[in-house]
């Protein structure tokens, strides 16, 4: 494994902030970020829709291994130089169920949290999408509008 692709939701402020934080950290394994609304996700990983990327965070290795939810978060931490130890701790059988619950709660309430924490408004969704799904923007905005 020498590369990890992180599929994040470009419509959610919380996710974009997490993505920006991850992008700033020094890594052991390089991370690439792909907005799940962009055409790049489907182009690079054909059939990714079956894994429901809009429900939980997805991390995919360059070999095609898919990690979902808590596992995806653990893989993100594992890729970071300063947080690999935390990834090991979180992956422990005692902590993993809690991590799973927290990740599920976060994913399910991410729009509520974005509104509550960052005062995300409807018009900023377009701005976020435009920033993370270039080009072409038209293709981007009409895919997976169910999120």
């Amino acid at each position: 494994m020498n590369h990890l692709y992180v599929l994040f939701d470009a419509q959610c402020e919380l996710c974009v902030r997490c993505r920006n934080w991850l992008a700033k950290q020094p890594t052991f394994v390089p991370l690439s970020f792909i907005a799940l609304q962009s055409t790049k996700a489907e182009r690079r990983f054909p059939g990714i829709d079956a894994l429901k990327p809009s429900e939980q965070l997805l991390v995919i290795s360059n070999e095609g291994s898919v990690y979902r939810g808590a596992h995806a978060w653990i893989m993100c931490l594992w890729a970071l130089q300063n947080y690999r130890e935390y990834a090991q701790r979180l992956a422990h059988p005692i902590l993993l169920p809690f991590a799973r619950i927290v990740c599920e709660l976060l994913s399910r309430n991410r729009f509520f949290l974005s509104r509550a924490l960052f005062k995300q408004e409807a018009q900023s969704v377009a701005r976020l999408l435009a920033a993370h799904c270039r080009p072409p923007q038209t293709l981007c905005s009409n895919s997976r509008a169910s999120v």
Partner: peptide, 14 residues
């Protein structure tokens, strides 16, 4: 250190 969690699925990579 190897990845601490196993992958849950596999997808083809273009």
């Amino acid at each position: 250190v190897p990845p601490p969690v196993p992958p849950q699925a596999h997808v083809p990579v273009a």
